[in-house]
Amino acid sequence: MSSTCDVLVDCRDAARTFGRGANAVVAVHGSSCRVRAGKRISIIGPSGSGKSTLLHLMAGLERPTTGTVTWPAGEGDDADPTPRIGVVFQGPSLIPALDVGENTGLPLVLAGLPEEVARGRALAALELLGIADLAARLPEELSGGQSQRIAVARVLAQRPRLVLADEPTGQLDRATGGQVIDVLLAAAAEIGAALVVTTHDPTVARRLDTRWRMHDGRLEMEA
């Protein structure tokens, strides 16, 4: 049994409801799960099953209506103030007015790293994914697949302990989606991070070691 400090996210009966009264919609029913260091987990389920909401709860981007979500491994510290969790979003998540290099380094600058350091780490991440030649381009000049690769590079530059990817291939064709998953896995391996990917595509889900299933807001763990 792993020790508690290996646990990156600990969800206990975490539920999320949107709206109130008659309009209330339960996106995630009380769900309990733990993500441990180094794990490769896919959360599969149809659209509207609550996968993204659960991922957002894990990322701390949504607060649970009931239950708790904790991050036992803690946040970034003074030595490395970058967040311990990196998120790859489903849709376009690059800032249109910043070039690829600046977009990739943005979380580091926001975390307080000096600009030159951020720039260096961003370029290194882009290099690692073989897309350094895109550094000076603007998001509007990129294809969907390239944008998602940049989003992965942005997470890579943060060197988090946990990468959460929300339907990273949802808006891509199968081949490009496959390449993005390759990049994600490679990036997670490079930085030794755990990886959680939500998807409705069984092919993508099969690329990861562990599969969790969401159905009508309920989390089921496969053996």
């Binding site: 007015a97 910043l98 070039d99 943005l106 600058v109 926001l110 307080g112 000096p114 600009e115 603007l138």
Partner: peptide, 14 residues
């Protein structure tokens, strides 16, 4: 603050 460079980059593009 430390986002000055980001701010100026944004303004340059916009």
């Amino acid at each position: 603050g430390n986002l000055a460079s980001t701010a100026s980059a944004t303004m340059a593009r916009r």
